Simulated scan of single mutants.
Amino acid sequence: MSRDNLAGDLAGNALGALAEDHDDARWAYGTGFHDPLAGLDTAVPDGVDGDALAAYCLMLGDDALIMSHRLQEWCAHAPELEEEVALANIALDLLGQARLLLTRAGQADGTGRTEDDLAFFRDAGEFRNVRLAEAPRGDFAFCVVRLLVFATWRLALLDRLTASRDPVLAAVAAKGVKEVAYHRDHAAMWTIRLGDGTAESRRRMAGALAAVWPLTGELFAPHDVERRMAERGLGVDPSTVRAEFDQVIAEVLAAATLPVPDPAGTPHEPGRSGRDGVHSEEFHALLAELQSVARAHPGATW
């Protein structure tokens, strides 16, 4: 079997569990599931630090979880019904990625923590998502620009992550590439539509770009964990995807007749990023909402 076919089979096994009907009712995003990694080789690859692998999975999983939550906030607030459905589906795609990655984190570090434990019972300083994902909802222009930036960056990461030596990461990435390609294209469509639309829509898109762009510097500053995982063939150094990101964004903004912001963005301050557990005040409010029911009724099932 070719490597590409193997990755496809692994992805199908991993994500197929999400659609199956099981009796194991847990908090995990409102549906009962069996082991989400069933059918995959979950042994930590030889010579790999399980704690480092878990930390890396938390980074990718937290990005998806928190971005999903922000997108879910658009339910009943999007400008048209079709967009309600589109944003909800994008949020669900990211939620599926999050639960696989969080489950892998709890398995890799040997703690046995579930995705429920990691999503609902960690404090803010234990989350490792980039701050772009946690920024307040903003208006629809902000939603579009943030999604364009996030999806363009994540797609480049996932595309390279399909070659990971960790079979779980490779499987999640192989499926995620297809999902996030749609997310990026959907956001690009709206960027062009609004940027090259009315004077008001253009003004709002320009304002959204100005608000989002300072948050991009963090995306390409490799954390020590990311660097170590890349060196061992398990992860991706985010600095290596900057050129691809800049090219895609430039093409989309040119079609939208919007100016390209300064490529450098805001300088990244080492040790003070979301990857280090340093988050905004808005993140604490987000987390309180996300975790409120699970914490009020710990151990409950439905």
Rank of each mutant, 00 (worst) to 15 (best):
R3H: 03
D4V: 15
D4E: 15
L6G: 00
D9W: 14
A14M: 07
A14T: 07
A19P: 04
A19S: 09
H22P: 13
A28W: 12
G30S: 05
G32A: 15
P36Q: 10
A38D: 07
A38C: 06
G39I: 09
G39H: 06
G39L: 04
D41P: 13
A43W: 06
G47E: 07
V48T: 14
A52V: 05
Y56W: 07
L58K: 10
G61S: 08
M67F: 08
R70H: 13
Q72N: 09
E83A: 09
A88R: 12
N89C: 00
A91R: 02
A91W: 01
D93S: 02
L100A: 10
L101F: 05
T103N: 04
T103R: 09
G112T: 04
D116A: 03
L132Y: 03
E134N: 01
F140P: 07
A141V: 01
V145Q: 00
L147T: 11
L148W: 09
V149L: 14
R154W: 05
L155I: 11
D159S: 14
P167A: 02
A173N: 11
A174F: 02
V177C: 13
E179L: 00
E179V: 00
E179T: 04
V180S: 03
H183V: 05
H183S: 08
R184D: 07
H186V: 05
A187Y: 12
G197S: 10
S201Y: 03
S201M: 07
R202D: 03
L209A: 13
A210Q: 13
A210C: 08
V212Q: 12
G217L: 09
F220T: 06
A221N: 13
E226S: 03
R228W: 01
M229A: 09
A230Y: 04
E231W: 03
G233Q: 14
V236P: 02
R242L: 03
V248S: 07
I249Q: 00
I249H: 00
I249E: 00
L253Y: 07
A254G: 13
T257K: 15
L258P: 05
L258G: 08
D262Y: 15
P263C: 14
A264H: 13
G274E: 05
G277L: 11
V278H: 08
V278M: 08
H279L: 05
H279N: 07
H284M: 00
L290T: 13
P298S: 13
G299L: 15
G299I: 15
